[in-house]
Amino acid sequence: MTTLSSSISASSTDIRTVKRVPLIDAARGAAIAGMFVYHFIWDLGFFAVIPASFPQSPGFRFFGHIVAATFLALVGISHAMATRGGLNWHAYLLRLATVVGAAALVTLATWYLFPEATIFFGILHCIVVASILALIFTRAPWFVTGLVALAIIAAPFLFASAAFDSSNWWLGMGFDEPRTNDWRPVFPWAGFTLAGLALAQAALRHGAPGSLIGWSTSNPVDRTLVLGGRHSLLIYLAHQPVLIAVAFLLSLVLAPRQLASVSPEADFQRVCVARCVEARADASYCARTCGCLVDVSKANNLWQKILRNDLSADEQKQYDELTQQCIRDSAVK
């Protein structure tokens, strides 16, 4: 208690001398744990250990969005804390260059392994842009940063237009969603970094960081989270090969039994209808549309590739056209 009390009353000079905040590292470590769960479920679906359509379900996708938003918000919080005693250009540019290099590595690796779903603007690419935006708002009043954050987050829902489709691969303001394994365009995702920055700016303004800095790891779980948070980029780059290997080994034992007990058609239609209804469509209309998709996919020899999430660019275009056909046919019934 004495340590915590003295930390709360620490002067601004003391705050500036603290290089890392363990609580922020722990939060980043918790986000890493969420990322592990998210990617491992994807890998299990890819190898058919679980129904391949489960990772596409609205609830699971929302979980992935929460994990991504948390990472991006922590970028803003970390930037505010790192610059509270002044901007260290060398440290900032070194961090930025490291993330740029990591993003390029992800693009090259996925281009080689998954050429039809290359990651060209995933979360690391977004962090690069968001870090530059955070730099611009480093000394802005917290409420200004917060208003800009809300504008960036809300813009795709209020002002999306087909006019932006040609730049939608990075901007996120169009309707043409690219085929990629991870897509976090500037709008709305960079807004979460500014939201984190605004939150930290407000906390600094009102003297809250003393309690944050005073928090210390008290058990093995806390220490593990802090350690993971401090090495989050390295873990991000290294974790997927390990998870893929584990999922593959599990598939050798569990996938045949799992596939025998699940109807792919029923599972696909369940997820399809759920996503359709989520878009405020009538349930019976959604059931007709999704049933049509199953039928036309089989008729055009796309069904097995859809289950494996392995459509080529031309096949994806064909599938999109079939989807529009089913939508039109269902609407007139």
Score class of each variant (00 low, 15 high):
residue 58 P to G: 04
residue 58 P to R: 06
residue 58 P to Y: 06
residue 59 G to P: 03
residue 59 G to E: 05
residue 60 F to H: 07
residue 60 F to M: 11
residue 61 R to H: 09
residue 62 F to H: 12
residue 62 F to L: 15
residue 63 F to G: 01
residue 65 H to S: 09
residue 65 H to M: 06
residue 68 A to E: 09
residue 70 T to I: 00
residue 71 F to H: 02
residue 72 L to S: 01
residue 73 A to R: 00
residue 73 A to G: 13
residue 73 A to P: 01
residue 73 A to N: 02
residue 74 L to R: 08
residue 74 L to F: 01
residue 75 V to L: 13
residue 75 V to Q: 10
residue 78 S to G: 15
residue 79 H to V: 14
residue 79 H to R: 07
residue 80 A to P: 04
residue 82 A to T: 12
residue 82 A to F: 08
residue 82 A to S: 13
residue 85 G to I: 05
residue 86 G to W: 02
residue 86 G to A: 08
residue 86 G to K: 08
residue 90 H to F: 13
residue 91 A to W: 07
residue 91 A to F: 09
residue 91 A to K: 06
residue 91 A to D: 15
residue 94 L to H: 14
residue 94 L to V: 14
residue 96 L to W: 12
residue 97 A to R: 08
residue 98 T to K: 13
residue 98 T to S: 10
residue 99 V to P: 10
residue 99 V to I: 15
residue 99 V to K: 02
residue 101 G to T: 00
residue 102 A to R: 01
residue 103 A to L: 02
residue 105 L to N: 05
residue 105 L to C: 11
residue 105 L to F: 10
residue 105 L to H: 03
residue 106 V to R: 03
residue 107 T to F: 08
residue 108 L to R: 00
residue 109 A to W: 10
residue 111 W to P: 00
residue 111 W to S: 11
residue 112 Y to G: 12
residue 113 L to A: 15
residue 113 L to G: 10
residue 114 F to P: 00
residue 114 F to L: 05
residue 115 P to M: 03
residue 115 P to D: 00
residue 116 E to Q: 07
residue 117 A to C: 00
residue 117 A to T: 11
residue 118 T to V: 05
residue 120 F to L: 08
residue 120 F to V: 12
residue 122 G to W: 02
residue 123 I to G: 05
residue 123 I to D: 05
residue 125 H to N: 07
residue 126 C to E: 15
residue 126 C to G: 11
residue 129 V to C: 09
residue 131 S to Y: 06
residue 132 I to R: 00
residue 134 A to Q: 02
residue 135 L to W: 13
residue 135 L to V: 04
residue 136 I to V: 13
residue 136 I to F: 13
residue 139 R to P: 06
residue 140 A to C: 12
residue 140 A to H: 12
residue 141 P to M: 06
residue 141 P to T: 08
residue 141 P to C: 06
residue 143 F to Q: 09
residue 143 F to R: 07
residue 143 F to M: 07
residue 148 V to Q: 01
residue 149 A to C: 03
residue 149 A to F: 00
residue 149 A to N: 06
residue 151 A to D: 05
residue 151 A to W: 15
residue 152 I to Y: 01
residue 153 I to F: 03
residue 153 I to Q: 01
residue 155 A to Y: 08
residue 155 A to S: 15
residue 156 P to S: 07
residue 157 F to T: 09
residue 157 F to G: 04
residue 158 L to N: 14
residue 158 L to E: 12
residue 159 F to I: 15
residue 160 A to P: 09
residue 161 S to G: 14
residue 161 S to W: 08
residue 161 S to K: 12
residue 162 A to F: 02
residue 162 A to V: 11
residue 163 A to N: 13
residue 164 F to S: 12
residue 164 F to N: 01
residue 165 D to I: 15
residue 165 D to R: 10
residue 166 S to P: 00
residue 168 N to Y: 13
residue 168 N to C: 10
residue 168 N to T: 12
residue 169 W to R: 04
